[in-house]
Write a protein that binds this DNA or RNA. Structure first.
Length: 579
DNA sequence: GCCGTTTTCGGCCCGACTGTTTTCAGTCG
């Protein structure tokens, strides 16, 4: 059993205790689930090495949950889970995925209407049965139906952020198979799409049988869909399908090109081949029956008169024309972010201390971070007020003195993620904002405003002379929450006018601004920052997702302020205000 | 059920918002 599955069961335990009105256990299980999810090693590995004691030592996991995990690893279940599940036998994860539905409401729906899953829920809602329940009404019934519809739209797609670690593990495993030469994942994963449908892995190897055997017997495999000499397909426990294809060396580049897509891009590229009287398929570029390119992608694009096009750009939105003219811009390189502009700590809803986050950032190759804990009115995170910010500022000064020497000048900057209130004002007083290095603002409430109201609200905040960055400008959460209604073009123009940088948030479930908005911002001459929205030390790894998004938005290094060293970054940020 | 430079027992992050209600439970993150 893998960490994700253990975490899922622990999370479910928490929800079931919540339905039972048990105190404190829900939070304890929730925390334990998070702890397991964030482990950098497999829990089963940990258990194998150090037994139950090793599990107990994980912060957030004590003797009771360690015993549950032990049982999970040994038998796949444990008694308390079985007992609770029997009481309320519903597909909890499925039902609470509906926006606005939580464990308590699920309990009522089961007790009163015997609703066990999404199908039951939809049927009952459509029949008007839900509005008759106590504490439910027409509005909640409508909201449930809207929630189901939204879920259905995003169904079958997975966040790249959740899939990529699995992909890397599988790639590593295949690389170790004797006789294997090259391993790469194509498709939407290689294109760094926000969400992906399945995993396409390409392998060159002398003995395909060995690859297929390893691939179809991996621990992640739930079912084998197909197994042949050159192609196999499996369903993974994460409910995502994965294909592997074994190819001859001379076709590797052609297959990579063919399976990386997207469809529109491939059609355009193949049209160019046809115009030249050639044929392009997954085995190569052919003149008649003669293979003229196929070993690498570069030689295929070159033969077709194109610059090599980075995978994340292959969306048929101008990249082919630019590549034909040799005029692809110098996209912001991966790994070029020097400082992270959005970092939450345990002062609010982050999981680690300022020091831990700084050290993790330094290990990730960064030179500075901006601490941007939430402010006052975001009470659920324990948002900081002016006094809290002042105390945190002192702490940061102290840490900079200590760490500066030890860490070769690594800098921690003072910042905040200040709430934009309903009327566009900020929830922190001006004199406190003046003491910060970086003031970022964002919307966390009143998502239901009209487009005009929301746009005016945000622009009023941008006009505030202390504001440097607008965080997650559209508020979307991929697959879970639609963006709020806002005229993003107007916001971009206002950001440029008032000297505010726009965030390209790298968190795999936000990616906000999204690629098309980034391109609008770049074209409008507004400046950007790419940051991770880190809430725990491992989150600095998200930066690649944001950089990929920025590349797809045609951003170059100069468009992104935090590609600069700390002094230049601060100077550039201030410079925006003076223009 | 977890945790400990206030505690091995007694605390557990605090409040806004929504939709349902005539005073509040549930969700959000």
């Amino acid at each position: 059993m893998i960490n994700g599955e253990i975490a899922k069961i622990l999370r479910e335990m928490g929800m079931m205790y919540e339905m039972e009105d048990v105190q404190f256990k829900p939070r304890a299980y929730e925390k334990a689930a998070m702890a397991v999810e964030e482990l950098s090693v497999g829990a089963s590995e940990l258990y194998k090495r150090g037994g139950k004691k090793a599990l107990d030592e994980i912060p957030g996991i004590g003797p009771a949950i360690a015993a549950h995990i032990e049982a999970l690893l040994k038998t796949g279940c444990f008694a308390e889970y079985r007992r609770l599940k029997k009481k309320i036998p519903v597909a909890l994860d499925e039902l609470v995925a509906v926006e606005g539905l939580g464990p308590k409401m699920v309990r009522v729906l089961y007790r009163e209407l015997r609703i066990r899953n999404l199908k039951d829920l939809e049927r009952a809602a459509k029949a008007g049965k839900i509005r008759k329940l106590a504490h439910f009404g027409v509005k909640s019934e409508e909201k449930i139906l809207r929630g189901i519809e939204f879920l259905r739209k995003s169904k079958g797609r997975f966040l790249l952020g959740t899939i990529l670690p699995i992909v890397r593990t599988i790639e590593e495993r295949l690389r170790k198979v004797p006789g294997v030469d090259q391993v790469a994942t194509a498709g939407s994963v290689r294109r760094f799409q926000e969400t992906i449908g399945d995993i396409d892995i390409l392998v060159t190897a002398k003995k395909p049988e060995a690859v297929m055997k390893v691939f179809t017997t991996m621990p992640e495999v739930e079912a084998i869909i197909a197994k042949g000499p050159t192609k196999s397909a499996v369903r993974l426990r994460q409910r995502v399908n994965a294909d592997v294809r074994v190819l001859p060396d001379e076709s590797y580049g052609a297959a990579l090109q063919y399976f990386t897509g997207d469809k529109a891009h491939n059609i355009e590229v193949r049209k160019i081949a046809i115009k030249k009287g050639w044929k392009l398929n997954e085995y190569g570029l052919f003149k008649g029956t003669k293979l003229i390119a196929g070993r690498t992608e570069e030689e295929i694009y070159k033969k077709l008169g194109l610059e090599w096009i980075p995978p994340e750009l292959r969306t048929a939105s101008g990249e082919i024309e630019a590549a034909a003219k040799g005029k692809l811009p110098n996209f912001i390189p991966f790994g070029s972010i020097r400082g992270d502009c959005q970092v939450q700590t345990e002062w609010t809803d982050g999981s680690a201390s300022i020091t831990e986050m700084a050290e993790a950032a330094r290990r990730a190759g960064l030179e500075y971070i901006v601490i941007t804990d939430h402010t006052r009115s975001l009470a659920m995170t324990g948002g900081l007020d002016e006094k809290g910010l002042a105390r945190q500022g002192k702490e940061i000064d102290k840490l900079n003195k200590e760490l500066g020497i030890r860490n070769n000048g690594f800098r921690i900057l003072k910042g905040a993620e200040v709430n934009i209130l309903k009327d566009g004002s900020l929830d922190i007083a001006d004199d406190a904002l003046a003491k910060l290095d970086v003031v970022a603002v964002s919307v966390h409430s009143h998502f239901g405003m009209s487009e005009r109201e929301m746009t005016e609200r945000i622009i009023r905040a941008l006009k505030h002379p202390a504001v440097n960055i607008l965080f997650h400008p559209t508020g979307r959460i991929i697959g879970r929450r639609e963006p709020y209604k806002v005229d993003i073009e107007k916001v971009i123009r206002a950001a440029k006018q008032y000297g505010v940088a726009l965030e390209a948030n790298s968190s795999p479930e936000r990616l906000d601004l999204k690629d098309t908005h980034i391109r609008m911002a770049v074209e409008a001459g507004a400046k950007l920052v790419v940051d991770s929205d880190a809430h725990s030390p491992s989150h600095f790894g998200f930066l690649d997702f944001g950089v990929a998004q920025a590349r797809r938005g045609w951003a170059t290094k100069t468009d992104v302020l935090n590609t600069r060293p700390v002094a230049e970054f601060l100077k550039a940020l201030r410079g925006l205000k003076k223009r």
